[in-house]
Nucleic acid binder design. Structure first.
Lengths: 198, 198, 198, 198
DNA sequence: CATGAATGAGTTTTCATTCAT
DNA sequence: TATGAATGAAAACTCATTCAT
């Protein structure tokens, strides 16, 4: 009984989170009303407030859900790839796959997370872009140590990788005809050999 | 007198635009009220509606102002630099300078323009990121023709340049201690020679 | 088993009443939510509705509980004091003792009972202030008959006694440093001899 | 023009205050909705928020209005009566007259002012009962100095006067058939000569 | 009986927009 | 043109009450 109840409670909370992420992503957090979310989840507006104390809190929980779950799962999934550069581009590819599978997550990563000041005031380490940058810098550091890449400015390196990833993602959301996968190969090529004539 | 009036009208309209951009950029367009803008411009709320039919229209005018004026002026300013790569990085540097001088413009480029769907529905070519990408692709095409860079995927090239620029700008807005100028040199170096050991 | 059940029912009902009085008194009936009461009684919200049909009814039951139990018990306790004036001031003292022991009762007497119109519409005789006034008038009548006090306006007499009692109580609730006990002696003195120079 | 505008503004604010006092007094502050007040004042709900930042603030302004205006005007009106006891009972009578003329004020004095903790936290000296008590104590002190009354406990004296006044007022609100004016004479008699047989 | 999740009507508050001056 | 008071529709949030378990 307790299990059943707990399960129900967990399920409804998760249901609200899931639908909220979809609606927030579709319309943006400001344009989304609690009524929209309730409608999408087929529950009464008041029910949202049984599980979340305010629309604000619900939005933050959505972000933590995405960052804590999705981003970390990508990082986790790539941790066994031995070659650092392969690992880096596998990370890139997985991120693209995530965006393609759950485009609303991209909206959170690029939009909400960038502009929700309250959220970053509370959880500065949850800035998803910063999380990505740190991860890439770390990978870069190892690649240098392993002499797989030359000794370069790690910040510049990380910003190049994450920047191109983020932009490609953003543009893909607007112009769906962008072939990110094939672009990834070209990006890898440019980063590897540089733009100079050999 | 007619001149006087026209001048006044132009001036007041521009005053509202100027202040609106500042406030929109500071608080985000959703959080900004017409009252905020009127207060900043030291005029009555009603006056805003003498020059703009709605808050929506005012926002769109702000974006056109930025894109049409600021962005184009950067592109214009670099047009006389003969070496394509120099021109590209001059463009990069000018963009950084613009963001540093008028940080609220960056907010528009990264945030508002990305999320204001109505605006893009009306003016797809005014997507400032797309404008940047097209410009860089064009530069890249010339550089290849001039054999200054090797024959590479222009999209990948443009996304790398604009992506790193946009990200650096975004992060600088949050963490002001980022030294973008010095990073630019490193980025140029990486792009030029690639990450591989020589 | 039937006894057991009845006892349980009685006990839980009384538990809710007891806790409801405390919470109502603490926060005022309007500010109190059914959830507050349920929490204080450590039961589920729904359980309140097993014993009371509405929050309104619960509030009325609380008032009857106080008037029927607490007030009558004071009147009862003083009934064997032969001297009418002693009895009157014993009544006064017991009331003070009650307020000090259970301050939340004072809140009911002064606040809720005065403002809950519905309650008085249903039970006009349960106005606790009226109950007090009637009791004091009755005592006064006897004291006059016994020639312990002079023949005076009974209403004025009762209003003086109950009025000063009620006000002292009210102010004591706000400013706890009021020494009601010592004031009672002075009040008795003034009422006895009047304010005139002898 | 400026005068006209300022007058309009002042008038509307005062109109809202006036109507709010009436409705608050009639239904109690908790039962009163902003819609009720707006309806009574024949304005839109939003207009209330042009002049008051919240319902809470409006309530507090109402109380200050009553305490600052009505109570002080009574105290002011009696200040030229030379005999202290006459002055005291003139004060009493004026208070009764006020309650009869504007019964809703009585509601504020006895109900809202007693229970609105927030208000007293901000303005402890605006407790209307305390204001009354202080005034009567002051009068009593002078009466003693002038040897018009004997040297008695000022607190007990003030509590008797204000207590009976407040209670009479309260009961009159419920049972309108109470003849307060005639009672006042009896009260004066009892207080003057005491209850003892001479 | 007891529960507590779910409900939805009702309330406060915001703010783009209008309009008389 | 310029004003700013007034509007009212829409949104967030509360909470007494119900009901399936």
């Amino acid at each position: 009984m307790s299990n059943q109840r707990a399960a129900t409670r967990r399920n409804k909370r998760d249901l609200i989170l899931e639908k909220a992420i979809e609606v927030f992503a579709q319309k943006g957090s400001q344009q989304t009303t609690v009524a929209d979310i309730a409608k999408k989840a087929k529950i009464a507006q008041g029910t949202v407030y049984v599980y979340f104390s305010s629309k604000e809190e619900l939005l933050n929980e959505c972000m933590q859900q995405i960052i804590g779950t999705e981003i970390e799962s990508i990082i986790e999934a790539t941790k066994d790839i031995p070659d650092t550069m392969d690992r880096l581009f596998s990370f890139f590819e997985q991120h693209i796959a995530l965006v393609k599978a759950k485009p609303y997550i991209a909206r959170f990563l690029t939009m909400e997370a960038r502009q929700n000041d309250d959220f970053f005031a509370l959880y500065p380490d949850y800035n998803p872009l910063k999380r990505y940058l740190d991860y890439v810098k770390d990978l870069g550091r190892k690649a240098i140590a392993e002499k797989r890449i030359r000794d370069l400015d790690l910040d510049a390196f990380a910003y190049l990788i994450v920047g191109v990833m983020d932009l490609a993602m953003t543009q893909w959301l607007v112009y769906k005809d962008l072939d990110i996968a094939s672009m990834a190969a070209s990006i890898r090529d440019i980063l590897k050999y540089g733009v100079n004539e050999k």
